[in-house]
Amino acid sequence: MSLTRSQVESIAHLARLDISEAELPVYADSLSKILSFVEQLSAADTSSVEPMAHPLDGESQRLRADEVSETDRHEKYQANAPSVTDALYLVPRVIE
């Protein structure tokens, strides 16, 4: 399994990561090695096996009642935000 430079560029775009020109071949190489390494999974016979998403089947993923359980703490939370005005998170203009 070998990834091309343009495949790495498209994965980086999907993952919203800015990858420099110099780094592209480095990631192409290491990602290709990882994909080749995990290739050995294809040898396992999984024809009658259910996929496992979670280690404790039937024990968890509870639902809770739709009731207010949190108080308004936006000021404390937004103290960590890079840019806030009037309790709104600011980003570059999206709609002209």
Partner: peptide, 9 residues
Amino acid sequence: LKAQKVRSL
């Protein structure tokens, strides 16, 4: 999906 199946095994 394949990895999740091997995880079951």
